[in-house]
């Protein structure tokens, strides 16, 4: 509590009231930190471990929250799991070991990066397949139409270019 809040020119009563209000505020904050940003102040053994902590706490999901990762949630389970994550990192466990540890206990649900399994093949390979499919069919259709057009009458290249010049002038 800040004693700077008490001005020695005011009456004792006012000081007392300020003191009470500050204390009450403090208690209320302690109890109602629902949307406070969660701040753990862990001491990591080195910078690399700290960075791994930051990355992993974003890769892991808080099991009980409405779609938040461990880094952003202030719920009790998230606070506990962050502490456990810290302990595991300090013990020297590798990233994969930590992920396996969490998945063994909480299931795949707790991973924001879905593991590559039979069930997630469509998820991981789908985008590439869709993109190649699109581009492939576009090329295919264009080539087919291109072949058909070769049979049509066409201007000479020189004539074509001058015509293009006229048409494409913006």
């Amino acid at each position: 509590m800040s004693y700077a809040a008490i001005d020695f020119n005011t009456t004792k009563l006012q000081q007392l009231i300020r003191l009470l209000v500050s204390t009450l505020l403090l208690i209320t904050f302690w109890l109602s930190n629902a949307n406070a940003s969660p701040v753990d102040t862990f001491e990591f053994k080195d910078e690399a471990t700290k960075l791994r902590f930051q990355v992993l706490s974003k890769e892991l999901r808080c099991p009980k929250c409405q779609n938040q990762n461990l880094a952003d949630s202030n719920s009790k389970i998230a606070v506990d799991l962050r502490k456990n994550l810290y302990n595991l990192l300090q013990e020297g466990k590798s990233d994969q070991e930590i992920i396996d540890f969490m998945v063994y206990r909480y299931g795949d649900f707790v991973l924001y990066r879905p593991p590559l399994k039979k069930q997630t093949y469509v998820l991981w390979f789908g985008p590439l397949v869709i993109l190649l499919g699109f581009l492939g069919s576009v090329i295919f259709v264009l080539r087919k139409r291109g072949k058909a057009k070769e049979n049509e009458l066409s201007l000479s290249t020189g004539e074509q270019e001058s015509l293009d010049d006229i048409l494409n002038k913006k």
């Binding site: 999901r61 990762n69 649900f109 924001y112 879905p114 997630t120 998820l123 985008p127």
Partner: peptide
């Protein structure tokens, strides 16, 4: 769309619960 709906797809097919988030 696929990523957003995938947990629902997996759940609807009775294959458990997974999460698809920022890393994906």
């Amino acid at each position: 769309l696929l990523g957003t709906l995938y947990p629902l797809i997996i759940d609807a097919m009775g294959m458990g619960k997974i999460s698809v988030g920022a890393p994906y």
